[in-house]
């Protein structure tokens, strides 16, 4: 399914967090990677290895120190790039949902469409309701985020991103704040999106998902990409000691 047209290209990206009075943290060290159109890239690695930093760099939420990131031929790291415009085409699903607390589920999906894409209210409502149905909570549109379960909130967040018709969707541990019994449903939804040909970058600790839905797996450790390949290659025949150690610890 995945074509050979790269839509995300990351070259030699470095990022260091400097906190006064403490040693600097190298969150990303010369990271080079790419994502093709329709491809599902799964990023795995131990806590603190830089997965979130990598993902957040892809939509400019985390500015990088050096290297370049290009999304659909627009260079994100170029100084004059309009980040807000670029982010319209990059969906992001957060670990803690980050739904707008003062808006209902439906409004969370329609408001950005009207404000950012200038769609009419009717059009936005129609798209919003369709997407709520698609993510399986068509009846909860009038509820506020605080009235929804974690799994339902995450479905709304996914619908909010989809409404912007993004070229690529980023998922940062989208299921790790959920109750065990709701994790499966959200993962199934993500698998459906993958099967529909959505380009996705997924940071997750769910190895089952990585094997089943991933086209490619990238293993990161201490800010570096240690290993990269098909799920079968990485899981069944890891080349590096660090990968082996990590996989033995989480299974």
């Amino acid at each position: 399914m995945a074509s050979k047209t790269p839509i995300v290209v990351v070259k030699d990206v470095c990022k260091t967090f400097k906190i006064p009075g403490r040693p600097p943290i190298h969150a990303l060290r010369n990271v080079t990677n790419h994502v093709n159109k329709g491809e599902v890239l799964v990023v795995i690695g131990p806590s603190g290895s830089g997965k979130s930093t990598f993902l957040r760099a892809l939509n400019g939420l985390e500015p990088v120190d050096s290297g370049s990131i290009t999304i659909d031929d627009v260079e994100l790291t170029a100084p004059k790039t309009d980040l807000n415009k670029l982010r319209q085409g990059v969906g992001m699903v957060f670990q803690h949902f980050n739904l707008f607390e003062h808006k209902t589920a439906l409004e969370n999906i329609t408001m950005p469409q009207m404000v950012v894409l200038k769609r009419s209210k009717d059009e936005a409502d129609e798209i919003g309701n369709k997407l709520l149905d698609r993510v399986g909570i068509g009846d909860r549109g009038d509820n506020y985020p605080s009235e929804l379960s974690g799994g339902q909130q995450q479905r709304v967040a996914i619908a909010r991103s989809l409404a912007m018709t993004p070229k690529v969707m980023l998922f940062d541990e989208a299921t790790s704040a959920l109750d065990p019994e709701t994790v499966g449903g959200v993962l199934d939804l993500m698998k459906e999106l993958a099967a529909d040909g959505t380009t996705m970058v997924v940071v997750t600790h769910e190895m089952g998902f990585a094997r089943e839905a991933g086209d490619r797996v990238t293993f990161m450790d201490e800010g570096e990409i240690v290993e990269d390949g098909t799920p079968n290659a990485v899981f069944d025949n890891p080349q590096h000691e660090r990968t082996k150690l990590f996989l033995s610890q989480i299974i």
Binding site: N59, L61, N84, K85, L86, R87, Q88, G89, V90, G91, M92, F94, H96, F97, N98, L99, F100, E101, P112, V115, V116, A157, R160, S161, M164
Partner: peptide, 15 residues
């Protein structure tokens, strides 16, 4: 998180 949610759908500072 609220600000980042808004950023991720491409809202400008004023929006």
């Amino acid at each position: 998180g609220q600000v980042e949610g808004a950023q991720s759908v491409g809202m400008t500072y004023m929006q």
